[in-house]
Design a protein around this nucleic acid. Structure first.
Lengths: 132, 132
DNA sequence: CTGCGACTTGAAGTGCGGTTCAAGTCAAGG
DNA sequence: CCTTGACTTGAACCGCACTTCAAGTCGCAG
């Protein structure tokens, strides 16, 4: 019917996700197939973009159900806007912490302390984030 | 015997980790109790520092067994040094990606697109990281 | 029409990082 | 001495994010 649709196998290959993961995401309501080719799911090309977003968010520490909420949200959902603001602060903290960890790792590679973990410079990473 | 040792309950409270998590870490070889007070585990104060390091690394995406390896490593372990270098690159990429995601979230909070995920500015976050 | 191979389904299994449970043990206080 | 309460143990269970499995179905090539 619509030859611009992409077969699940191709979506899997292009997105780097397993077909089983795509079906799993469908059950969770994160994506949906536009049609079928026989039994085979066929997806709109935009789905690839959506999957990239999903992967990105999941890597960032969002759960799949959080991602689902975000995907379904319109601009008028104030509760969700607030949660995104909260998530932004969370991600900011994470960036700070990971930056310190990166610096510590960078040092660890050339450090001569024994054991490594006792190196005061390495310990910079561990400085507590003031958490509420 | 040594009244500078800290009871597991206090370590749990001070570290923010559950006592069950401490026992779990012990089974995994990440920490060990210095002694016992009856049956109760008693830890050296430095253990709190170690736990902070463990939490930090785990939050950063290290698995507990990776963390165990790092904790046991001396300065002469070249294989480990290489893995740390690799991890440093990994963490760097993550910092970049999270920074983009943070910016997107920051924008999302004030964005008027419907649905939010279609906003081109929001999509900045999704730019693919060149992965090997 | 017959294979073949890539898909389909629901259900069960996996690995991680713990938590929870039941039954038992200990130290201190009354 | 007896209770109380925080610990002890191993084993079972949990949620998440998938993967794997068995059995079945489809489209296409020969």
């Amino acid at each position: 019917m619509d030859d611009t649709l992409i077969d699940i196998g191709d979506v899997a290959r292009q997105s780097g996700l397993a077909a089983s993961a795509l079906r799993f995401y469908e059950r969770k309501g994160l994506i949906q197939a536009e049609g079928r080719n026989g039994l085979r799911r066929a997806y709109r090309p935009e789905t690839l973009e959506r999957l990239a977003l999903i992967s990105c968010a999941r890597d960032a520490g969002f759960t799949l159900s959080e991602i689902g909420e975000f995907l379904r949200a319109g601009p008028s959902d104030e509760r969700l806007r607030a949660r995104m603001a909260a998530k932004e602060r969370e991600v900011s903290q994470r960036v700070d912490q990971l930056t310190r960890l990166r610096d510590s790792l960078r040092h660890a590679v050339v450090c001569t302390h024994d054991p490594l973990v006792e190196c005061p410079e390495f310990k910079q990473a561990v400085r507590r984030v003031p958490q509420g």
